[in-house]
């Protein structure tokens, strides 16, 4: 956890303080980016964009909230913006996934982080986006709808479909983490 004094110094533009903040948060931020990105290279670009945005706007952090929470939101925003540049929104409406199994014996939260990342990486862009925002980044459907310019009901349905697809990955027994973990390696 970064001390408030470090943040204050970083707000003055001190490069060492900025590096301390980067070192403290880069690992977690990279996970956020990996969750949203399709490729590892994209995640690195997202990370770069996010941190540049964080450091350019760090003076706006007013110490009223949690600094890491603030950075997370900026980072998520950078990811969404990055995806926006490649017109992600056009494929948010995915074709119905008909063969979904909902009675998978495996509970996703019991998987390791890397395994979950690998699962998420397999989701179509639209599902992945909503799943990430809602489940892992704490946005509600109204916020997601506003950010992605979709309706709340669309957001809900995307989430349901994402869950079903994840479960189906597990239930179909075709999930082999070692083969799909390329993104995080």
């Amino acid at each position: 956890m970064v001390d408030n004094n470090i943040i204050l110094i970083a707000q003055q533009g001190n490069r060492k303080a900025i590096k301390v903040i980067y070192d403290d948060f880069a690992g977690k931020a990279f996970v956020i980016c990996l969750r949203y990105a399709k490729r590892r290279e994209d995640a690195e670009d997202m990370l770069q964009e996010g941190f540049v945005k964080i450091f350019h706007n760090i003076k706006q952090f007013d110490f009223k909230g949690n600094f890491e929470g603030w950075m997370r939101r900026v980072m998520v925003h950078a990811c969404i913006r990055f995806l926006g540049k490649i017109e992600i929104y056009n494929d948010i409406e995915q074709p119905e996934f008909t063969n979904l199994k909902t009675n998978s014996p495996t509970i996703i939260s019991e998987l390791s982080e890397m395994e979950i990342l690998a699962l998420i990486e397999k989701l179509p862009n639209g599902y992945k986006l909503v799943f990430n925002m809602y489940v892992l980044d704490g946005y509600d459907h109204a916020e997601i709808a506003a950010k992605l310019s979709i309706t709340e009901s669309t957001s809900r349905s995307q989430l349901v479909k994402a869950r079903r697809m994840l479960q189906s990955f597990l239930g179909k027994n075709n999930f082999e983490p070692q083969q799909v973990l390329k993104i995080v390696e």
Partner: peptide
């Protein structure tokens, strides 16, 4: 979902 979120809150991969 909560468990999942908490799990990822602390998860870190060095870039």
């Amino acid at each position: 979902d909560k468990k999942l979120k908490e799990k990822f809150q602390q998860y870190s991969i060095v870039p």
